[in-house]
Design a protein around this nucleic acid. Structure first.
Lengths: 343, 343
DNA sequence: GGGAACATCCAAAGCGCTTTGGTACAACGA
DNA sequence: TCGTTGTACCAAAGCGCTTTGGATGTTCCC
């Protein structure tokens, strides 16, 4: 069933039917009712492609997921982020289109999206330091919002980020308050902006108290369980092992815990752990009482919020310079406790 | 730059330029070269929407991700599956469009996709027993491939699945061979087809050896870390606790291990664990030697393979009845060992 | 009673492609 | 020489919508 057929069935012109369905005022209310009823009855829905062609909009938002060709790693937060954003798009009649891009091809993918007029805007995932995509998208004139930020970017751009620096600063302070002086960092890849900021927060907190920053207890890699395990095991084997650990993800925190327990130590007593928690649906940080003390910020909520910003910005480009900084909650769980007394 | 502008620049008709770019034979080879060069120079790419309108194809594949409104759970395998499929789509010039659907709305979402002519086909995720989507999609005539299967479906349909029953049967046999007689099952939701089949494999293996199937050591829920932990803790507290566990996911296996270790037991000695491993990029089962003995099957590879089937089936509907059954490997890791001798 | 103002509808153009049904010209065999 | 066959191109229709620029009544007020 298309517009032509529907309008014939109703004995009306396509114009009138189209206007009735799109809420234009120059249609008799009775007629509009009749049209809407018929549309529902015949399951009529305008073709996205035709509508897009006619209006010049794509009615779609693109998400380009970077896949590091080295590790073939897909960011585990992706599913939840998408779930949050998807709901918003659907509510506004937008489609979400996904592209995967290996490291080298990113520019091509964005250019293709623009040239094919496939999307009205894009979400930039996983921003790196001084990320080249910001200039690129600015140059080709594709509206975008960054999930995260990019330190070093000179152009203004829209972003939504968690205050990673502050979160890790608070977490470090929390551990310092508990008397910990050897605090290890198990971070994500530090060319990623979020990881960079987290390290900043960590070092700032240490330096503020005159605690030395020791590279031998700072690790940085893809945030896998195994990485958390290996890093922790290595650090615990040091002559002066950390009494507390700061993890960038719940997944690596699970690995850290494994190493702690394997070493015959008890988490929360011998070794305290604080992790960042993206509140992923399949990786809840325990039930009522969190397992891990954590800096928490729902990535799903971020997805929904960011989608709103992008859609708003497409409707009114003035709004496309919004910056939203979310604060992470510090949830106290059972993985932290006072620093063990030296015997 | 659109086709009209490009053809004017070349002094050719739109017809010829279009044909040149789409590889039709009735174009002089020299002309084709000239056209291709110009297209590259001006970054010309045909508008997806216009092309779709003209050809009557959508040039897009839909993925509808079910989100159980109860748990707001997003399947963690989703990211990796998409990554696999996305690459295939890109190679064939297809777009991937994503929709999220709460439990109740699924039918609406599929109908909408069809009515709006937004996609040429869809991938059905997370099939349940006797899944109603199969009949629905069949009725509305939307080509589809199911990732998994649906026991009880009467219509023929295309699917790609892991041999879950066989995998769990083998895993159970493996444990039985090691002398385990109390084998607990930590399964996914059993209205999900994969979980149902896994339980089948498990019970079949037990019954074949005359080992009683005991519901008190069989759990079924969303496969979270916490669920693995709780289930294991509960089971270990039984009068006759299991000496081995079969987990449906690496995530719940991590929880199981936590409970085992918390109980002061050693995994692989006191309690053996086998898990299914979807080979997710962010949740590797250890390094060289797997941590967990596991039935492994790459969900990413499945995504790529399934996308091929769907695209093939759209090109030639005859092919849309393919069924692919992948066997999972049984990887022996460090989480299993002979059953502890009764003292 | 006549024109203004409004309400309600419509025909047709246009969005950027593909595809149909040609035309023009060269080469060829009879 | 003429028809035939190929080769290389093109004009125009059409995909299913939206939107422009009317057209046709109706109502209202002076």
């Amino acid at each position: 069933m298309n517009l032509k057929q529907l309008s014939q069935k109703l004995g009306l012109s396509q114009t009138t039917v189209s206007r009735a369905l799109n809420g234009y005022p120059e249609v008799n209310e009775a007629t509009r009712m009749r049209v809407e009823r018929a549309a529902a009855q015949y399951h009529y829905r305008p073709s996205t492609r035709a509508k897009g062609l006619a209006t010049g909009k794509a009615l779609a938002i693109g998400h380009v997921i970077p896949i590091s060709s080295k590790h073939e790693m897909v960011n585990p937060i992706f599913g939840d982020f998408i779930a949050g954003a998807g709901e918003t798009y659907a509510r506004h009649g937008y489609e979400m289109i996904l592209c995967t891009a290996d490291d080298g091809q990113e520019e091509q993918v964005y250019r293709g999206l623009k040239a094919r007029r496939a999307v009205d805007g894009v979400v930039v995932h996983g921003p790196r330091l001084d990320d080249s995509r910001i200039r690129l998208l600015h140059d080709i004139g594709l509206p975008f919002v960054v999930h995260g930020r990019s330190s070093g970017a000179t152009l203004p751009y829209a972003w939504l980020d968690v205050n990673n620096r502050h979160a890790f600063q608070r977490a470090t302070d929390f551990l310092l308050d508990l008397g910990h002086l050897r605090i290890g960092l198990i971070n994500g890849m530090e060319f990623m902006d979020f990881a960079h900021r987290r390290r900043d927060g960590y070092t700032i907190a240490l330096l503020a108290r005159g605690v030395p920053v020791d590279p031998s207890i700072m690790r940085s890699s893809e945030m896998t369980e195994d990485f958390g395990y290996q890093s922790t095991r290595d650090m615990l084997a040091l002559g002066d092992p950390p009494t507390a650990l700061l993890c960038a993800s719940l997944i690596s925190a699970l690995g850290a815990r494994r190493a702690v327990e394997e070493a015959g130590l008890i988490m929360g007593r011998d070794v305290s752990i604080i992790t960042h928690d993206d509140d992923l649906s399949y990786l809840k940080n325990g039930g009522d009482i969190p397992i891990f003390t954590a800096t928490r910020s729902s990535v799903r909520a971020a997805g929904a919020r960011l989608a709103e910003i992008l859609l708003g910005g497409i409707a009114d480009p003035e709004l496309l310079h919004q910056n939203v900084l979310l604060e992470a909650e510090l949830m106290v769980g059972r993985s932290t406790g006072p620093a063990p007394r030296k015997d």
